[in-house]
Design a protein around this nucleic acid. Structure first.
Length: 243
DNA sequence: AAGCCCAGCAACCGCCTTTGA
DNA sequence: CTCAAAGGCGGTTGCTGGGCT
């Protein structure tokens, strides 16, 4: 029993899009906006699968796309993001305005892989190719060590709610354990601290504690989330702290 | 000029996740 | 809670054009 097709294939075109099809798709989306891809082809008078329309729009017809060659800065950013995120092309594309996941994926496979290989770097692991000898470890001890290196010590088999391995959690987001002795006053951090409720727009709520110099807070500090707790009660706060 | 090979990229496929009834 | 529909994603395919023999 096969999978049911995503749409009626008997009467749909496949392959390269024609100028006329592009025109129809653009005109329809400009008039009605994106969304409801399944019904779009029929409404727009296109003999295409909804998925095909979505892909054509996202990867080629969207007006905010940046066409043309990738810059050196974009190359380096892609390499850096790939080393952190792996093949999460849509996440990587999200950090590169005007570029699509498909474009970045193709560019990676055709250009960046070669570039890294020519630098002696394994594109999969971002480690020097010499070190890929690790991949050849065959003893159980070697395999265990390899897993620890790959996923981080103590992280093996730990997954976040999205099913991703520990390593992929490293998005500069950090939750610290309860903090007992703040090393410096909030003023010395150099900014006005807002309590958790105010940060959510609930200023002057019954739980707001800004006025009594509470240590409960949610703070962003140079990109990292930190968690702190007032010593003499059970309230807590979240910080973003320097790295 | 013809044929072959290969790189690049648009598009497809199938699986997974999200959403809403 | 369950299930089906729809959306989204990543891997793969196959067409096209340029270079080489």
């Amino acid at each position: 029993m096969g999978r049911s097709p995503c749409c009626e294939r008997a009467h749909t075109n496949k392959g390269a899009w024609t100028r006329e099809e592009d025109k129809r798709l653009v005109a329809y989306i400009q008039a009605h906006g994106e969304g409801c891809w399944r019904s779009l082809p029929k409404s727009a008078g296109l003999l295409r699968c909804g998925k095909s329309c979505r892909l054509r729009w996202i990867n080629y017809l969207r007006p905010d796309l940046k066409r043309g060659n990738f810059s050196e800065e974009e190359d380096e950013l892609i390499i850096k993001l790939h080393s952190l995120l792996g093949n999460k092309w849509s996440l990587i594309a999200g950090r590169l305005p005007g570029r699509t996941d498909n474009e970045i994926k193709n560019y990676w496979n055709t250009h960046i892989r070669k570039k890294l290989l020519s630098r002696g770097i394994d594109p999969s692991t971002h480690r020097p190719i010499n070190e890929s000898a690790l991949d050849n470890m065959t003893t159980s001890l070697g395999a265990a060590l390899k897993e620890e290196i790959t996923y981080g010590f103590g992280c093996k088999n730990q997954k976040n709610p999205n099913g991703e391995k520990c390593q992929e959690l490293n998005l500069e987001l950090r939750i610290c354990p309860p903090y007992q002795h703040p090393p410096q006053s909030m003023e010395s951090i150099g900014r006005k601290i807002m309590c958790f409720y105010c940060s959510l727009g609930l200023k002057n709520s019954k739980d707001c504690s800004c006025s009594n110099d509470s240590d409960d807070f949610l703070v962003m500090k140079n990109g990292t989330l930190d968690y702190r707790r007032q010593e003499n009660n059970s309230k807590f706060g979240l910080f973003i702290v320097n790295r």
